[in-house]
Structure formats: C-alpha cells, structure tokens
C-alpha cells in the first residue's frame, strides 16, 4: 500500500500538490468567507444535475415542454434533479452576489488580488448569462415571454441593437433557432468559458492565499 503510494507520488507529485494546495497556512476568517466555495459547490451541483437533465431534455419547441413534463412526472426522481437545478440557479446567483459583496466590504480586491477580482466579475456575469439562457429552455409561457422581452431589451442598444437582437434570437423572431442556440450557449459555450475562468480564479486564490480580515489600521 505504502509502496504503491510512493510509486504514484514519484510520478504524479501528490505530496507536492498536497503541500501546495491543502497544507497551507491561511489567515483566520469568518463564515462570510465560505461563500466562494459554496458557489463552487453549487456550480458543480448545477453541472451534475444539468448533465442528468440532458438525458431526457430535447431542445426543440415541439418537444422541450413535453420532455420536461416527462422528467417531472415520468422519470423517477426527475422532480428532484430538476428541482435542484431550478433552485440551484437562484441560490447560485445569491451566493455569487454575496460573495462579491463580501470581497468588496473587506477590500479584498486590492493588491495583490486585482486580477482575481476581474475573473470574479466575469464569473458573476457568466452566472447571470447561464440564468438567462437556461430560463428559456423549459419552453413554457413564462420563459417564452420573459425571453421575448429580455432579448428586446438587448435590442434597444442604439445602432447595433437590431443586429444584437437578431444574433441572440437567430433571426427576427423567437423560434426554434433561438431555443437551439440558447441550449448550446447554456450547456457548452458558457460552461466552457466558466470552467476556464473558475480554474484561473482558483489558481489565483491558492497562489495568493485567502485574504485576511483587515484590522482597523489598514
């Protein structure tokens, strides 16, 4: 057993990883500092439940609504998987936002963590983007009309608005094309960008250490 570990460690550098990532000295912090990893936890939950949902979900106007109905009523624990995904999205927005406020309140975005902050803002926007694109997917009245107005809002930009609206919708109308591209954004493009950004964010957090709670003289 010990030999096997040694063999692996020699090749993978497990001890180094342990020393660098886990066995580090960090400042004492309070409960507000747990929201970063809580956001990561929720994001992972979203990923896992989202992958499960794609097993039955069909991104087409003819079948999207019925396939969601099937997940809710026809599949065992479908209600749980979708329920977690649905509520997880809301909670994720909340935790990410409070996390952002915490960083602001303790001035943790200042030297040397400026770039960590920038990646964090990117992640915040990605979370909102995931929320917006995911909202359309059930293809029900609520999601349809909310997206109709949401894309209309983007279309009010002077000059390029009409173009942006057509890019978002994939044409002038909210249609099957819109659903397909929102689906693609929701499950491939935005998560891919988010994973890269989360990686950078975590790398920076480990490299620079968790910020400390500033004292009165700081």
């Amino acid at each position: 057993m010990e030999n096997a570990f040694k063999w692996l460690d020699e090749r993978l550098g497990l001890n180094e990883i342990y020393a660098e990532v886990l066995d580090r000295q960090v400042p004492k912090v309070n409960w507000w500092f747990t929201l970063g990893s809580a956001s990561l936890f929720l994001a992972i939950m979203q990923g896992v439940t989202g992958i499960f949902l794609t097993i039955y979900y069909v991104p087409s106007p003819d079948h999207a609504y019925d396939s969601i109905n099937y997940i809710m009523n026809g599949v065992q624990f479908g209600w749980l998987i979708r329920g977690i995904h649905h509520w997880g999205a809301s909670l994720l927005v909340v935790t990410v936002f409070i996390h952002l406020l915490r960083v602001f309140f303790y001035g943790a975005y200042k030297y040397p963590r400026e770039f960590t902050w920038v990646t964090g803002v990117v992640l915040f926007l990605l979370t909102l983007g995931m929320g917006f694109t995911g909202y359309l997917l059930p293809w029900n009245q609520r999601s349809f009309w909310a997206t109709m107005v949401g894309t209309e809002i983007a279309g009010t930009a002077p000059g390029v608005g009409g173009f942006i609206l057509r890019v978002l919708r994939g044409g002038t109308d909210l249609s099957a094309v819109t659903l397909a591209r929102f689906f693609s954004m929701h499950i491939w493009i935005l998560p891919a960008v988010a994973m890269l950004t989360v990686g950078t964010h975590l790398y920076l957090v480990i490299r620079l250490g968790i910020s400390h709670i500033p004292g009165e003289d700081e």
Partner: peptide, 24 residues
Amino acid sequence: AKQEGVRFWPHIIYKDLLMSFAIF
C-alpha cells in the same frame, strides 16, 4: 495574519463544507 491563522486543510475546508452542506 497568516501566522495567527490556521491550516487550509482541514480547518477551512471543514467550515466550507459545513456551509455547503447547509446550502445542500
């Protein structure tokens, strides 16, 4: 601040996990 602090593993992870579990 670090010197007065704790080890990331297990102390911080423990706290984070409690929070995540509550959220779960």
